[in-house]
Computed example of a mutant assay.
Amino acid sequence: MLTITATLRCQGGHEDVLRDALLDVARHVAAHEPDTIGFFVSQDLADPCIFTTYERFADQAAMDRHNTSAALARCFATISPILDGDVVLLTGTELSAKT
């Protein structure tokens, strides 16, 4: 199982925009990406400007389809102007999971 963990920070006052854009991607994943095994979105309790996604993919092809999807492109077109710093991406191989 391949994974991506992404951490995104938006400028203060734009939390709703970032949250809505990430949830739009989550809805797209649920409806159109059967080989994306999981797509989780979290908002930090201490700093609501920080969001994290945890994404689980059946294989490299599934990850590539997700990363080149129109939904993700729309998300980044929306959020790029409100990001505070770079998106931090960690790509890995999942070693353990409780499902």
Rank of each mutant, 00 (worst) to 15 (best):
R56M: 13
D20E: 13
Q11V: 12
T7V: 15
N67W: 02
R56Y: 03
F76P: 00
C10Y: 09
T52A: 09
M63T: 06
A70C: 03
A62R: 07
R27K: 06
H32G: 03
D86E: 15
A62H: 01
A62G: 11
I79S: 06
M1S: 06
G85I: 02
L23K: 07
M1H: 06
L45I: 04
R27W: 10
D84I: 01
D44V: 01
G92T: 10
V87N: 06
T93Y: 08
C75W: 00
L72H: 08
D47W: 12
T36V: 13
D84R: 06
L18E: 09
Q60H: 09
M1T: 08
G13M: 10
F40I: 09
R9P: 09
L23R: 11
V88P: 12
H28M: 06
T36H: 04
Q43H: 05
M63H: 04
Y54N: 02
I82P: 07
D86V: 04
Q11H: 13
T99N: 09
G38R: 11
A21K: 04
D35E: 15
E55K: 00
H32I: 00
F40S: 12
E94W: 03
M1A: 11
R19E: 14
C49E: 11
A30M: 11
L18K: 06
C10H: 12
D47M: 14
D20M: 03
T91M: 12
R19A: 15
S69Q: 04
Y54T: 01
T78P: 02
S96W: 13
E94R: 13
G12Y: 07
F39I: 02
H14N: 15
Q11L: 14
S42Q: 15
T36C: 14
I37C: 09
D86Y: 04
C49H: 11
V88W: 13
T7M: 08
S42H: 12
R74H: 14
S69G: 12
S96T: 07
I50M: 11
L83M: 14
D59A: 00
F76G: 05
L89F: 14
D86S: 09
T78W: 00
R74C: 13
D16I: 10
A77M: 10
A61G: 06
C10E: 14
H14F: 11
A6W: 00
G38Q: 10
A46F: 08
F39L: 04
D44F: 02
S96M: 14
P34K: 11
V41L: 03
H32N: 14
T3N: 07
A30I: 06
L72P: 03
A71H: 07
T78G: 03
V25Q: 03
F76R: 10
G13W: 06
P48C: 03
K98F: 09
S80I: 00
A58D: 13
D24K: 07
P48M: 05
R27N: 06
G85M: 05
E15Q: 15
F51D: 04
R65D: 06
C49P: 00
E55L: 02
I79Y: 03
V17H: 02
K98S: 08
T52Q: 12
Q43M: 05
A21C: 11
T99M: 05
C10S: 12
L90A: 15
A77I: 01
A46D: 15
T91D: 08
I79D: 05
T93M: 11
T53S: 02
D47V: 12
A61W: 02
D20A: 15
L90Y: 13
C75L: 15
H66P: 07
A6S: 14
T52V: 03
F76E: 09
